[in-house]
Amino acid sequence: MSEPRILEVRTSILKRNDEVAREMREEFRRAGMVVVNLVSSPGSGKTRLLYETLVRLRRAGRRVAAIVGDVETDRDARRLGASGAPVRQIMTHGLCHLEAEMVRRELLAWPSEHVDCLFIENVGNLVCPTSWDLGESLRVALLSVAEGEDKPLKYPGLFNTADVAVITKTDLAEACDFDRAAALDALAAVRPGMPVIETSAKSGAGLDAWITFLEARRP
């Protein structure tokens, strides 16, 4: 046997995912779509905020659609479907994040009609979705007032990759002793300058600002 030799590789481990994501991003851009990837811990309020978002955008005449990832069950797809928007569920059966190829498969199976805004609700997890690009134009990290203001500091990778943070469940702020300044500081520490929108899907507070923010992203 010959001597071992060192070969340079210098290749991204997620090269394949990055390539698929890049292709999709280009297709989305050409189709004039805004694609939003919602990430947060389980229970932060992704589905409920998304439901309200779909209802409001539809009311404004936008064509919207959603893909939702969960480890098991199609419960969220059924909740979201009540908005009237087309929704598809991805069950990952154990996988803790969505990958670009999974999203592409869902899109291929979809009747091809124009969509202005596609939402992807990622699997609830503050770690694993970090490095998986889904071709989105906007990554939104949710932080509920009930989960601790320091979550961004504990999971900096995910919050750092987000384009915008949405603080959710503000109707519960008082009951949870939510320290708003601490939450804003934590977000700024992991992503200086990141815009933050404060919402309650229950009371409707802040939803107009959120919708306006989304509308401004339309090409």
Partner: peptide, 16 residues
């Protein structure tokens, strides 16, 4: 944010 394979060490007949 790096996640990359930098290098590998290979053994094989044509390795040289």
């Amino acid at each position: 944010h790096e996640l990359e394979v930098e290098s590998i060490e290979v053994v094989g007949p044509r390795g040289d």
